[in-house]
Design a protein around this nucleic acid. Structure first.
Lengths: 337, 337
DNA sequence: CTGAAAGCGCTTACAG
DNA sequence: CTGAAAGCGCTTACAG
């Protein structure tokens, strides 16, 4: 049995209402009384029961954070961190549930959150993709992070893939390259499509003709068998071209890492013979490569923050906000003699 | 105003007590009545208020998960996942709070959890280390994961570093190597010390003399300036030895990645001239290297699970459980002609 | 400045 | 099989 407001009152020799006043810092308690109550609180180790408060106040102080694997994805957890930061500024806590693709467990998780009377809901995906919206999300203020629905019904925060593709390409164009290859992600995912769009835009703008031969795939489609040699053959086909590229945009840092290795087979080196940019800024990889990898960092932290701010500002429009990547400029985009 | 049990009762034409029986699946409700109530529940979209239940039942159904950055560390988030899995089997949910090194915010977080009447507490660190125990943890059943206190006061789950060091070394000894180097982590952290201990044990057992020259440091101590060239000079000093090592245990996969590159400077290749094992099994790195990196996977998922199981089994002894790493055997530990 | 009453939405224990 | 009462630990609104 936990100690309650009544126990404190008895110990302090006041009514329990006075204790309530003290713990809520209400005005109108004599200093001497306040001290006496505080002493009783300390002596008994009293802590207000938030369930009781919640019931009277009709609000829970919790925001539900629904994620598909966000926490286990390297650095995607920063989404959570950014959200947590803003939530706690507003004295709210996050209740995080991980939903797998199991429909039943997803339903259970959402029911649980709603029964706990979450004041708002965040749906965060570990990679930028379209989702099927759990309809219950419309019952409370909600936002989408790193994911979206076909029809925009909620405020949506996604990374600005097109701009990132543009920037990653532009960095190479500015170094004078005109023959720029690209190793793309699975073409079925949004990031692959939009970054390619940015790449083309940068080329267009610079008056460089698009050459489809320079676009190769670094990973299989969902419907293809996973094969580990995908980047290998991608690089192979670029190197087999009559006119090899002098620069390369990699779909993710893991591709870039492999490119560093694979180039050696052709007697080439990143940073000497081939300029490289990439996406993600995986801290495990990008700074440890030589030369350091120039790469576009996904704005996880900022998306998490922006989404929660939106929730608190009650901007419940249905617009999609594009959050910019941060270019992390190291050396790989620049060739040294 | 949310719909309550009374609204449902009115809609169904019963007392609210009967509604309570239906939502709790209590025996002794006529089928016809149950259906009528269920229809009212569906029609009104009623959801039981967990705060009210909590108050009557005197338990919250939540377990507090205190972490220092667990979610943002690649794959350490699996700690959380394992914990979540077991918790939900027992119909409990996790409330995750991230505590930074700010004393005040830590206190706030713990207070919040206790006010929410968490039934138990988990403290999880993102790397294996000693912590200062928040004294409040002794007020509820608690466990430590991936961290420990000087004096054992709580059940503690940590990775079996010595065994991992032993296994990583043993894999190389079994390939016939007798000159085995080691690139260690910061010697001030537990993992570095214990893995070295395992390394020495494996050598001893095989009758190989320990040679201090073969032990080099891949990262700076806490009190030294961070320098990026640490692995580089470590490899350099090994290669400068009269009798170079033929095999190498790397303190983490990031070191291994750099070793693959650095060796090229000496005209050497991992898997041909040098056998390599490592620790972590970072999925971003280990499978993408050529040859694939043989590495000891940290048992994050299993630690999370084991800790929660312990909580539910009320095994509140103070013993320390060592959770084994999983050897992920690829090709790098084996030399090919 | 302090207190007694009512009620938040449920469940437990007891009647009928 | 169904219901009326009491109470979980607080806060709100009103008296004194």
């Amino acid at each position: 049995m936990m100690v309650s407001i009544k126990d404190v009152a008895e110990h302090a020799g006041t009514s329990f209402k006075t204790v309530s006043r003290v713990i809520n810092n209400d005005a109108g308690v004599r200093e001497e009384t306040r001290e006496r109550v505080q002493a009783a609180i300390d002596a008994l180790g009293y802590r207000p029961n938030s369930a009781a408060r919640m019931m009277r106040n009709q609000k829970s102080g919790v925001i539900g954070f629904i994620s598909d694997e966000v926490v286990t994805q390297p650095y995607a957890g920063e989404l959570l961190l950014g959200a947590q930061e803003v939530a706690s500024e507003h004295d709210k806590v996050l209740m995080v549930v991980n939903i797998e693709h199991d429909r039943k467990r997803q339903q259970r998780a959402i029911d649980m959150l709603l029964e706990r009377r979450v004041e708002a809901l965040v749906y965060a995906s570990y990679y930028h993709r379209e989702i099927e919206l759990p309809q219950e999300m419309l019952q409370v203020p909600s936002v989408l992070v790193n994911c979206f629905t076909t029809e925009a019904v909620l405020p949506t925060f996604v990374p600005d893939e097109v701009q990132a593709g543009y920037d990653a390409t532009r960095l190479l164009i500015e170094q004078g390259h005109t023959r720029i290859g690209m190793i793309t992600l699975n073409p079925q995912i949004v990031a692959a499509q939009k970054r390619l769009e940015g790449y083309r835009r940068a080329l267009d703008e610079a008056g460089i003709a698009f050459d489809a031969e320079l676009i190769v795939r670094g990973e299989p489609r969902f419907d293809e068998p996973a094969e580990s040699a995908c980047v290998e053959s991608a690089v192979g086909s670029l190197m087999a071209l009559d006119k090899r590229p002098t620069a390369l945009v990699c779909g993710k840092d893991e591709f870039a890492m492999q490119v560093y290795f694979l180039l050696a087979r052709f007697g080439l080196q990143v940073g000497r013979d081939l300029a490289v940019t990439s996406f993600d800024n995986q801290r495990l990889i990008a700074p440890g490569l030589t030369p350091g990898l120039t790469t576009m960092e996904l704005p996880h932290l900022e998306m998490g923050r922006a989404a929660l701010r939106c929730l608190f500002n009650r901007m419940d429009d249905r617009s999609t906000r594009l959050i910019p990547f941060s270019p992390i400029v190291r050396e790989s985009h620049r060739l040294k003699a």
